[in-house]
Design a protein around this nucleic acid. Structure first.
Lengths: 144, 144
DNA sequence: ATCTAAATGCAACAAAGTTGCAATAACTAA
DNA sequence: TTAGTTATTGCAACTTTGTTGCATTTAGAT
């Protein structure tokens, strides 16, 4: 289910017995962004519309409803709207300088996911693949 | 490089120009456990030997040196000693009941890691692969 | 229009992580 | 072995992040 506009939000909320409120619409609207955002950034963007505590509560709710995903980048989590049933987050994260490199190689991974979820009768929602280590620059400087 | 005793710790520290201190040995010793542990648990176990702040600093250092890994289980991170150069953490995590299922399928994943790290000249230390979704039991109960 | 439960905002709190700095302890070289 | 230098530690204070209880408000059912 694609969740990319306010109407989808409203549908999901009422289908699940939750009320459609201004705070939830505002929470949703600050989530609209091409980049995953930290909780702090979301709170900051909405601070004159929605209370901090309400943000936490609604983000939790949205996560339970599959509207947002929490992904780990380096050491911290970030939040983003699910824009499809299955998200892709594959990256290399440098332990030394913190640089994050995105990988695109869906094929290998998708095969793998299918084989393993089938085996356990598991319904996938989201996945994340992270490799921590040292980027080319930092590996180089260690050698000297 | 296997890091499973105090001697390995000492070697790694001095090879990298860091001092061998009692606080670092104590930090290392509370990490010895078959299970990954939360930061809070580590601080608690060592609280009469090592200051909280020093724990944070040394865990950070150990992570940079590849002595510990930080892994995400559900929403929180836990720490554990690396007992080999490359750790394997692959699991399915149920968003509804919280059950965690471990996967063992090294082959697929190892191939993939090699191809992608080679491409970016990245030196891997640790990786983690998590699939969130609904386990067989919870998927079933949703259908009714 | 009224009623009721759900949702919000506020205040206060708890937990997690960070910073600056003075005191201490580990290595270095004489 | 001692003296000197620098990294490391512990402490106090602080910031950030997340949580709880409760009185007030608001969405939606009747």
């Amino acid at each position: 289910m694609k969740v990319d506009n306010i109407q989808s939000l409203k549908n999901i909320l009422s289908e699940n017995g939750y009320k459609i409120t201004k705070a939830r619409e505002d929470t949703f609207s600050v989530l609209l962004s091409p980049e995953p955002q930290s909780m702090a950034a979301l709170i900051d963007k909405a601070h004159d519309k929605v209370d901090r505590v309400t943000m936490y509560r609604n983000i939790d709710l949205f996560e339970k409803l599959g509207i947002v995903n929490r992904i780990y980048v380096g050491w911290k989590y970030k939040l983003e709207l699910s824009d499809s049933f299955m998200e892709h987050h594959h990256h290399l994260s440098c332990l030394s300088c913190g640089k994050v490199i995105d990988i695109e190689d869906e094929q290998h991974i998708n095969e793998f996911i299918k084989s393993v979820t089938d085996k356990f009768n598991f319904t996938p929602r989201h996945h994340q693949f992270e490799i921590d280590g040292f980027c080319n620059v930092c590996s180089e400087s260690k050698k000297s």
